[in-house]
Simulated scan of single mutants.
Amino acid sequence: MKHRILAAVAATGLVLTVGGAGSAAAAPAGRDVTAKKLLKVSDVHPQTGMTLLEGPVFTEDGSLLVVDVTAPAGQPKVIRIDTATRKASPFFTDQAGAYTSAQVSPHDGRIYLTDFVSGAIVSIAADGTDPQTFFTGDVDGSAMKPDDLAFDEQGNLYISDTTGHDDPGGQDRGRVVRIDRDGQSATVVAGGLPAPNGISFDEDFGGLWVSQYTANRIDYIGLAEDGTTVTSQHPAMYVNAGRAQVDSNAVDAAGNVYQMFHNQARVMVFSPEGDHLATVEAPVPDDGKYSATNLAIRPGKKDAYLTVSGPSGGFVYRFEALAQGIRQSNGG
C-alpha cells in the first residue's frame, strides 16, 4: 500500500514498485460496470520507481484535481485535469510533501492536503498558491499518519490516522481524528482501529464510513451533534478482496458507498444497508500490478473519475455512477 511505499521512500529513497495484481480474484455478485480510460496523467518517476495518483476532487471552476503521492521535489504534486479536453497540467508543488488526499473546505474554499510523511495538514489557495501549514504536531501525545480527509458541513476536518498499518504484530493503533476548522483543537473521535484509510460522511452527515485497511472491512461510526462524540460504532460491510486491501471510499447522493482498493483495479459499490450493488472494473495494461485507490463523482452529475496507478504510470478512468455526486463524493 502507499503507506509502506512512503515509509520506504522516506527512509531510504530506494527505487520501489507497487505490489499486488490488478487482475485478482473473480468479481463478486452485483452488476458489472466497465470504466473507460480518460487520460494518462503521470509517468513512473525514476527517483521513486513509481507514481501513485490519489485524492481526486472537483473545484468550484469544474476542474478535477489529483495528487501524485510519490512525486519528487519540484515535480507536480497536485495536478489539474480538464476532463473535457483530457489535458493535465501542473497545479502545485513543493520540496518535501507526500500528499495522499485533497479536499476543498466548505468553510474557506481552500484546498487541504494530508502529508503522510510529516503528519501535517497543508492548505493552498484555490488557484494553487499560498501554501500554509494548517496543523502539525502530536494528537493526544502521538504523531499522526494522516491518509484521507473528510469535511463536515461547518468545515471541521475528519482525518483517517492510519498509524499501525505496517505493524507486523497486528496491533490496532489507528484513529479517526477531528480537527476544528480553525486548526486550534484536535480530538481523537475513535481509536484502536485497524489502520483506517478511507473516510467519508454518509449522505446526511450523521456518521462516517471508515475503510479499515488491515481488516478489509468498512465500519460505520455514528456521531452526536457535537461531532466529537461517537453514538454507535460497528463493522458495516466485510469485503472479500483476496490479496487486495481496502483503500479510499466515497459516497453518492443515494448514500451508496464506493470502495476502492490497493492491489486491484476495481471499485465495489454497496448500498447503505450493506448490499453489494455493483463492481466497477478498470481495464489496465497487461504489464504488472495496478491499484484503483480513489474516485470523485462530479457534483450534480453521475460521471465518476477513478485514479488508477501501476507500472505504466498514473491514469484517470471514467464511468457512470449509480447516483449523482455530492460533497462526500469527492474522494478525500
Rank of each mutant, 00 (worst) to 15 (best):
G137S: 13
G97A: 14
D138I: 03
P90L: 01
H107S: 15
T129W: 04
R181V: 01
R181S: 07
D130E: 13
E153Q: 15
V117C: 03
T100G: 13
R80Q: 13
I79P: 03
G74L: 05
A125Q: 06
S123R: 15
R173Q: 11
I179K: 10
D138V: 05
L157T: 09
A126E: 07
P106W: 06
P106L: 08
D115N: 04
D172G: 00
G169Y: 00
V122R: 13
T114A: 14
A150V: 14
G74Q: 05
Y112M: 10
V122M: 11
V117E: 03
G170R: 01
M144L: 04
D147K: 10
D152Q: 06
F91H: 06
A84Y: 05
S123K: 15
P76T: 06
D161F: 08
D94P: 11
T162Q: 02
S101P: 13
D82Y: 04
G164C: 01
I121Q: 05
D166F: 02
Y112V: 05
R181T: 01
T133W: 09
D140V: 11
E153P: 07
L149F: 10
I111F: 06
Q171K: 13
F151H: 00
V122A: 07
A150T: 12
D82I: 05
Q132M: 12
Q132V: 13
R173H: 03
F92Q: 08
Y112R: 07
I79M: 12
S160R: 00
V122Q: 09
T129R: 15
A98W: 03
T100W: 06
Q75M: 04
A88G: 06
F135M: 08
L149A: 10
A125D: 15
A84K: 15
V104D: 09
